[in-house]
Design a protein around this nucleic acid. Structure first.
Lengths: 228, 228
DNA sequence: GCGGCGCGGATGTGATCACAAACAGGGACG
DNA sequence: CGTCCCTGTTTGTGATCACATCCGCGCCGC
């Protein structure tokens, strides 16, 4: 069927390499929570999904394993990592330590347009939360933070944080799935107020508290589903 | 020459896969500072070096690129990242934020044996510094921190820190190469004292100051060699 | 009926090949 | 003498194949 020749379709994806496409596809599915913890990934399945060969699929998987978004058994089988209370606590602690720094660095470059965009995202978060749209919640919440941190001009720190997000993403989806509309303190609102007031310490504290609240929520919910 | 067959040598390396061997070899050379910033790496050269094919070499390179220990030009050429003052500052800031946390988590599990091992490493550091052994300095300094953090039982945080180390390693070698015996405050000694006294805040502050001192040192030296 | 053994399919690993793009060198023209 | 182009070489990309290993499932013996 597929010609041994070059890419049969040179029109659309044209420039981006096959391994990059596989990487982005898988990464997006992980971040969106479409992959459940424990789900296994096969190179042939991945390759067939996007009409490429195993070689680029392997490269994409290796990359995600290096970023700890996937894990490999000693025998080489690839799967989405399973939740682990201790590891999740570590990752949230890393977020508490790193993200306030990003927020502080972003503060001087925040303009009105950014604030209004973040307000819109915060509204979207509330909407998703009340509608029980877990996937939308995760996406909007990520965008809320990303919009701010993008102004920090700190790619190395940002890369570290994104690595952490990638590792927590598969859980988030499930955590917020079984969390109806809970009583959440509005730390996003506090962060927005701090941005408008150009108050660095208030901003850092709001970000830290927002993450700590997520960690605490997660801790309380983790007790239930000990097994999975 | 090389048979199309399986690995010709099944006796020694036996178990560890080819891509893993390439990865470890390259990683060790980067951490040891053997690769200069800007050095280029070729898949065929890498493969030939260890007598494997291009496939495992590519996987190893991808992994290191994902860990930001190597970088790729848009055309796919691979090289050791070049210094960049801003990025280095970010990485040292990340260390300042993350490593005190690891030290705090390790503190309860520290025993006399650990302390004496760390004291030995600290002595080795002083020796390397006075002898101008930059490679030995970097290795001993890394070991000093690793010995402590290994007791923290925090693999996720440790992985983040190791990723940062990998990114700073190529510079460290050169920075400490052109740093004779400078006047350095003995924060390692302070950390050891805090460990013996079980003083968490003193320990965290000593670790933070040690890293901050490295960052300051680097900042002052970075002014000279603006270009490279 | 139940547990261990073995076979077949599924899966990861690595080598090899064909190809396209990028780089470096020299030669020709202005 | 400088600049541009053109070609040969180097290098990364991706497909395909052969092979070893692992997993699951059914069959046989107890």
């Amino acid at each position: 069927m597929a010609l041994p020749r070059r890419a049969p379709a040179a029109e659309s994806a044209a420039e981006i390499p096959a391994h990059e496409r596989v990487y982005r596809d898988l990464r997006a599915r992980i971040l969106a929570g479409e992959m459940a913890p424990g789900d296994s990934v096969t190179l042939r399945g991945l390759a067939e999904r996007l009409g490429v060969s195993m070689t680029p699929a392997r490269e994409a998987v290796r990359r995600l394993v290096a970023e700890r978004a996937l894990e490999m058994t000693p025998s080489g089988r690839v799967s989405v990592p399973v939740p682990d209370a201790g590891r999740l606590a570590e990752l949230f602690r890393a977020r508490e330590l790193l993200e306030p720094e990003l927020a502080l660095r972003a503060l001087p470059h925040v303009d009105k347009q950014t604030i209004s965009m973040m307000k819109a995202l915060d509204a979207a978060i509330d909407r998703c939360l009340s509608e029980g749209d877990a996937a939308g919640y995760v996406r909007a919440n990520t965008a809320f933070h990303t919009t701010l941190y993008a102004l920090a001009g700190a790619p190395a720190l940002m890369a570290l944080v994104e690595s952490v997000w990638l590792q927590t993403a598969p859980f988030m989806r499930r955590i917020y799935g079984r969390l109806g509309t809970a009583a959440l303190a509005d730390y996003h609102g506090a962060a927005l107020a701090a941005l408008a007031a150009r108050d660095g310490s208030a901003l850092a504290e709001a970000i830290r508290a927002d993450i700590a609240q997520g960690a605490a929520l997660l801790r309380s919910l983790a007790l239930d589903h000990t097994g999975l």
